[in-house]
Computed example of a mutant assay.
Amino acid sequence: MSQDASPLFQPFTLGDLVLPNRIVMAPLTRNRATPGTVAANALTAAYYKQRAAAGLIISEGTQVSPQGQGYLNTPGLYSPEQIAGWKTVTDTLHAAGGRIFAQIWHVGRVSHSSLLNGGVPVAPSAIPAKTKTYVADGFADVTPPRALETAEIPGVVAEYAQAAANALKAGFDGVEIHGANGYLIDQFLKDGANQRTDGYGGSPENRVRFGLEVVDAILKVFPKTRLGIRLSPVSPANDTVTSDPAQVFGLFVSELSKRGIAFIHVIEGATGGPRDNVAFDWAAIRKAFSGAYIANNGYTRDLAIDAVSAGRADLVAFGRPFIANPDLVERLRTGAPLNELDRATLYGGGEKGYTDYPTLDAA
């Protein structure tokens, strides 16, 4: 079989959506939403349109509420202006033949008071994260959080459900819940960030409760065939770790499988770092889930072809390679060299480093 005939480049049915290939554009925070309204805009639409050949695009993290924002000029999905902004993006992308899921996001303790009108971030427990966020003056230490009151939690769950309903209004093909990388759901899952003594802390059964309540609330307003979740069982991203990843994530994935959602999107290893930072049985997680498995973290062309051909993954997500290579699918298909990433333009700014990377046909 030629590399070009690899299953990586063949169609795949995800839930009830037929994808032309198994290459996923991972969510990538770029901090270019319109200041003030933090809405997606015409430049956002141009960026995603350039990458329409991906089998599936998962949008940049999109906060479910003002309290859920953790970085400067990241988009939301809770106001009419934001819904309209994203509708421009989805209409533009669909006209170009693409498919896009909204990644809905609450950062929890990974935020800064300057982004919260002087307020304090919320978290499962009042444990500061040893990490930084991006604010008007550049990168800064996060603001220490306060613990969510038990009575507040249903309101936060409802914000996720409303954001999912808004994603439908905005024309998205589906939703990915951000449950990874040390943000709110991941904070509840991992005992390094969750020291609660109520029904949301302690045992694995208690720590998975918040995430499952989010999923269940969304499923009341949203089709399960168009819903997935991103997970990072052993990533220490944003200073969020756990003593029992196999137990808590084994349980969580098993419960997700019972609900029949379309996919789990799994960061294997440390986010953007070593794939073997902690010993973990990825095959067990895949086996525990009845839907599609999207593999992520450090995949090259050859690794992706091998993983899909061997059945270790159904789809493979690529992150930063998609930033510098809007035509990444074609480059992977043909084995063409990749453009070099301009790291100075990753966050904030305008067209430079966003919509001006060359394609093969422009070279």
Results as ranks from 00 to 15, higher is better:
Asp302Val: 11
Pro66Thr: 11
Val156Tyr: 00
Val175Gly: 00
Tyr160Gly: 03
Ala164Gln: 01
Gly174Tyr: 01
Ala45Asp: 01
Pro20Ile: 09
Pro337Trp: 13
Ile264Met: 04
Ala170Gln: 02
Gly272Ser: 12
Thr359Lys: 12
Gln50Leu: 13
Tyr48Ile: 04
Ala102Leu: 15
Trp282Asn: 03
Arg209His: 03
Gly61Cys: 15
Lys220Ser: 11
Tyr347Met: 06
Ser2Ala: 15
Arg259Ser: 06
His106Gly: 02
Ile83Asp: 04
Asp306Gly: 11
Ala304Val: 08
Ala53Val: 06
Thr13Phe: 03
Lys169Val: 10
Phe210Tyr: 13
Gly108Leu: 01
Leu303Ile: 08
Pro35Leu: 03
Ile177Arg: 01
Arg32His: 07
Ala102Met: 13
Glu330Gln: 15
Gly138Ile: 13
Tyr357Lys: 10
Phe139Thr: 14
Ala317Val: 12
Leu341Ser: 11
Ala180Gly: 00
Ser243Tyr: 06
Thr88Asp: 15
Glu268Tyr: 04
Ala310Leu: 15
Val135Arg: 08
Gly118Ala: 10
Met1Pro: 15
Ile23Phe: 05
Leu14Phe: 00
Gln10Asp: 11
Gln187Trp: 05
Gly61Asn: 14
Ile127Ala: 05
Gly319Leu: 01
Ala324Ser: 12
Val253Ala: 00
Arg30Ile: 03
Gly192Glu: 08
Gly171Cys: 09
Arg22Phe: 00
Ile100Lys: 02
Gly319Arg: 08
Pro80Gly: 08
Thr34Lys: 12
Asp361Ser: 14
Gly182Phe: 07
Ser235Val: 07
Asn21Leu: 07
Ala310Pro: 04
Arg51Pro: 05
Thr197Cys: 09
Gly155Lys: 12
Gln82Cys: 11
Thr74Asn: 07
Val89Ser: 05
Gly85Ile: 07
Lys49Met: 09
His178Asn: 12
Ala147Glu: 09
Thr225Ala: 15
Ala279Asn: 12
Leu19Pro: 04
Ala317Gln: 06
Ala310Lys: 12
Lys224His: 13
Trp86Ala: 07
Ala284Tyr: 10
Ala295Gln: 05
Ala123Trp: 00
Pro236Gln: 08
Ser2Asn: 14
Ala295Glu: 00
Thr133Pro: 02
Met1Cys: 15
Thr88Asn: 13
Pro144Met: 08
Ala284Met: 14
Gly319Cys: 08
Arg209Pro: 00
Glu149Gln: 13
Val234Leu: 07
Ala307Phe: 03
Pro245Val: 06
Glu176Leu: 04
Asp314Phe: 01
Val266Glu: 02
Tyr183Glu: 06
Ser232Val: 02
Lys130Cys: 10
Ala180Lys: 07
Ala126Cys: 10
Pro236Asp: 09
Ala45His: 01
Pro27Gly: 05
Leu168Thr: 15
Ser6Leu: 09
Arg32Met: 09
Lys190Glu: 12
Glu81Cys: 08
Arg22Glu: 00
Lys132Leu: 10
Ile323Gly: 05
Ile294Phe: 05
Asp244Ala: 14
Ala33Glu: 03
Glu149Asn: 13
Glu268Gly: 03
Arg286Phe: 08
Pro128Phe: 10
